[in-house]
């Protein structure tokens, strides 16, 4: 059933990470993504990995689920790795057979890229796994609220996000119902060539569109009745509050930035030959 789809892939597990202020989570996720790209050697990257592992462990999200999240980008990882191995010719030659010429530099470069991409995906999915859509919207709203001073009103964006989240289940239910109704009149949505199928979508989309427009009108009236005026002078009942652990996490995030920068400088630019030789 369409109804069973969960939006935003949120896992309500109630861990320490789940309870953090969404702004703290947005901040460390954003910082992490930048730091993964800033990391210029394996040692800095190792620090990133350590942080990611720590967050996953604290969040109680099953490791299996986290790894599953990487499946959609598997192809991208394979292709980039292949290209790295094929074109990077630095370091010690490992295999030189017929036209295949693989060097240690290529392998390491491929590994480096794979780690970077995976970390990126893992950390962004961790954000949605541990933050409910409502909490996320609140966090974004609060984070970007100051932008109103420079003329960017983020309130409208969060309102749109909230309404979308609110109405997606309703519209999914509606699609379900229209499909059943038209099937009852003999409509066949599953077979036929592409033209036939496209044509069969009319009995679904016309009623759906009309219903969405009608809902939009009624919602606009209802919002007007509740004094909505674009969010000017709006207050929030559940105002987000930075707690001790949120400050701690933010502090740790800064420490993490410092750590990556120091390791970058101390261990130098990532160099395939150097790294390989020292590894051996």
């Amino acid at each position: 059933m369409l109804k069973d789809i969960t939006i935003g892939q949120y896992f309500p597990l109630g861990s320490v990470i789940h309870k953090l202020d969404p702004r703290a989570k947005l901040f460390y996720t954003f910082t992490f993504i930048i730091m993964v790209f800033v990391s210029s050697n394996f040692i800095s990257l190792a620090l990133c990995i350590a942080c990611a592992v720590l967050i996953i462990a604290l969040s109680k999200v099953p490791v299996k689920t986290v790894i599953k999240g990487l499946r959609p980008i598997l192809l991208i990882i394979v292709i980039t790795s292949f290209l790295q191995i094929a074109y990077v010719k630095t370091g010690v030659t490992l295999i030189d057979f017929w036209k295949i010429h693989i060097t240690s530099g290529g392998i390491l470069q491929a590994l480096f890229m794979t780690l970077r991409i995976s970390l990126l995906i893992v950390m962004s999915t961790m954000l949605t796994y541990t933050t409910s859509p409502t909490s996320m919207t609140n966090g974004l709203d609060r984070t970007f609220a100051p932008l109103v001073k420079i003329g960017i009103d983020f309130n409208i964006v969060t309102m749109i996000m909230t309404i979308a989240l609110r109405f997606i289940p309703t519209l999914i239910e509606e699609v379900d119902k229209i499909l059943s109704a038209q099937k009852s009149r003999g409509a066949n949505f599953e077979s036929g060539n592409i033209f036939k199928r496209a044509k069969m979508l009319i009995p679904l989309f016309v009623p759906l569109l009309f219903s969405a427009v009608r809902r939009a009108y009624e919602l606009a009236y209802a919002m007007t009745c509740r004094c909505y005026n674009g969010g000017k002078g709006k207050t929030t009942m559940n105002a987000l509050k930075y707690k001790k652990c949120d400050y701690l996490v933010t502090l740790l995030t800064f420490a993490f930035i410092a750590g990556v920068v120091v390791l970058n400088i101390y261990c130098g630019e990532y160099n395939a030959e150097f790294t390989f030789n020292s590894a051996v």
């Binding site: 004094c227 005026n229 969010g231 709006k234 207050t235 009942m237």
Partner: peptide, 11 residues
Amino acid sequence: AFGPENLGIEP
């Protein structure tokens, strides 16, 4: 809470 929030009432 949507209505009162729009009216700018204290949390």
